[in-house]
Amino acid sequence: KRRTSFTPQALEILNAHFEKNTHPSGQEMTEIAEKLNYDREVVRVWFCNKRQALK
């Protein structure tokens, strides 16, 4: 499976959402994914990886 390359704009939006809520609901992740035109699973993994990076 290929790595997803996030655009700077997408990272800005993802980081803004992460600052508000580090554990978004499934519905929220779906909405973010649709807004950014990414697969929901990609957004889920991004949040998971971001949380791990802060440990």
Rank of each mutant, 00 (worst) to 15 (best):
C48M: 15
R3F: 14
N37G: 15
R2W: 04
L36S: 02
E28I: 12
F47P: 01
K35D: 08
P24L: 03
N37L: 05
V45G: 14
Q52M: 07
L14W: 00
K20N: 06
T22M: 12
K20T: 11
L36M: 07
K1L: 03
H23F: 09
T30N: 07
I32T: 01
K20H: 05
A16I: 07
T7K: 02
E19L: 11
N37A: 11
T30H: 11
C48G: 12
A53C: 06
T30G: 08
T22A: 13
T22N: 14
N37S: 11
T7P: 14
I13F: 09
Q9K: 11
N37Q: 11
K55T: 15
H23I: 07
T4W: 04
R2P: 09
F18C: 02
N49W: 04
A16Q: 13
A53Y: 12
I13M: 06
T22K: 10
E34R: 05
E12Y: 02
F47K: 02
W46P: 01
N21S: 07
T22Y: 06
F6N: 05
R3N: 15
T22H: 15
E31L: 05
L36G: 01
T7V: 03
T7I: 02
R40N: 13
T30F: 06
C48Y: 11
K55L: 05
H23G: 06
A33L: 02
P24A: 03
E12D: 12
N49Y: 06
Q9F: 07
I32R: 00
P8S: 14
P24C: 03
N15I: 01
P24G: 00
R3I: 15
D39K: 05
T4D: 10
R40M: 13
W46H: 02
L11N: 00
E31N: 05
E19G: 08
L36T: 04
Y38S: 14
T4I: 04
Y38V: 14
R40L: 14
R3V: 13
F6S: 03
F47W: 07
D39I: 02
F47Q: 01
K50E: 08
E34Y: 06
A16C: 07
T4E: 14
R44K: 06
N15D: 09
Q27Y: 04
K1S: 05
F18Y: 15
S25K: 12
I13K: 07
N15Y: 02
R44F: 09
D39T: 12
T30S: 06
Y38T: 15
I13L: 12
W46G: 02
L11A: 05
K55S: 15
G26F: 07
V43R: 00
N21C: 12
A16W: 07
T22D: 11
P8Q: 04
N49C: 05
Q52I: 14
Q52C: 09
R2D: 15
V45W: 11
K20W: 04
V45K: 08
K1Q: 15
Y38K: 08
P8N: 10
K20P: 00
L14A: 00
E28D: 11
N21T: 07
L54I: 05
V43G: 00
Q52F: 07
V45A: 12
C48I: 03
A53N: 14
K35L: 12
T4Q: 06
E41V: 03
I32G: 02
R2T: 14
L14I: 01
H23W: 09
I32F: 02
K20Q: 07
G26L: 11
A16H: 14
K1D: 07
L11I: 15
Q27F: 01
K50N: 06
F18W: 10
P24R: 00
R44I: 08
A10Y: 01
R44M: 10
S25D: 07
E19M: 12
V45D: 15
E12P: 02
N49Q: 14
I13D: 03
R44E: 13
R40I: 12
V45Q: 04
S25Y: 01
G26P: 12
N21K: 04
C48F: 03
K35R: 11
A33K: 03
H23S: 14
I32A: 02
S5Y: 08
T4G: 10
Q9I: 11
A10H: 03
N37I: 04
N37K: 11
E34N: 02
Y38D: 08
C48Q: 15
M29I: 03
H17F: 11
R44T: 13
E12K: 02
L54D: 07
Q27G: 11
T30R: 09
N15E: 12
N15M: 08
L14D: 00
H23Q: 12
G26R: 11
P24Y: 01
A33S: 09
S25R: 09
S25A: 07
K50G: 03
K1V: 01
V45T: 14
A33D: 02
R2N: 15
E28C: 04
Q27H: 15
W46C: 00
E12C: 05
P24N: 00
S5M: 08
S5Q: 15
Q9T: 09
K20M: 12
K35V: 09
K1M: 05
V42R: 07
A53M: 14
N21V: 04
H23M: 05
K20V: 08
K50W: 01
F47S: 01
L54C: 05
R51P: 02
Q52W: 05
R2F: 11
S25N: 10
W46D: 03
H17R: 09
E19V: 09
H23C: 13
G26E: 15
A53K: 07
L11M: 09
A53E: 09
P24M: 04
K55R: 13
S5K: 14
K35M: 11
S5R: 09
F47N: 00
L36R: 00
L11E: 12
N21H: 07
T22R: 13
F18I: 02
P8W: 03
T7L: 05
Q52R: 11
Y38A: 13
T7C: 10
C48R: 11
Q9A: 12
Q52L: 12
S25P: 04
E34D: 03
L11W: 03
S5E: 15
T22I: 09
Q9E: 03
T4N: 10
A53V: 06
R3H: 05
K1N: 14
V45H: 08
A33V: 05
T7H: 06
T22V: 15
H23A: 11
A10P: 00
K35A: 10
I32W: 01
V45M: 14
T4M: 08
E41Y: 04
Q9P: 12
V43M: 00
R44P: 03
Q27N: 09
Q9Y: 10
R2S: 15
K50F: 00
L54R: 09
K55A: 15
L11R: 06
E28R: 07
F18N: 00
A53F: 05
A16V: 10
A33E: 01
Q27A: 11
D39V: 03
E19S: 15
T7F: 01
T22L: 12
P8V: 13
S5I: 15
D39N: 08
E41M: 03
H23T: 10
H17W: 13
N37F: 04
I32C: 15
N21G: 05
G26C: 12
N37H: 10
E12V: 04
H23V: 10
D39C: 09
V43W: 00
P24I: 06
Y38Q: 13
H17T: 13
A33G: 05
N37P: 06
V42Q: 09
R51T: 05
N21M: 03
E41C: 09
T4K: 09
T7E: 14
T30V: 07
T7S: 11
I13C: 09
V42L: 14
F47T: 01
K35G: 10
E41Q: 06
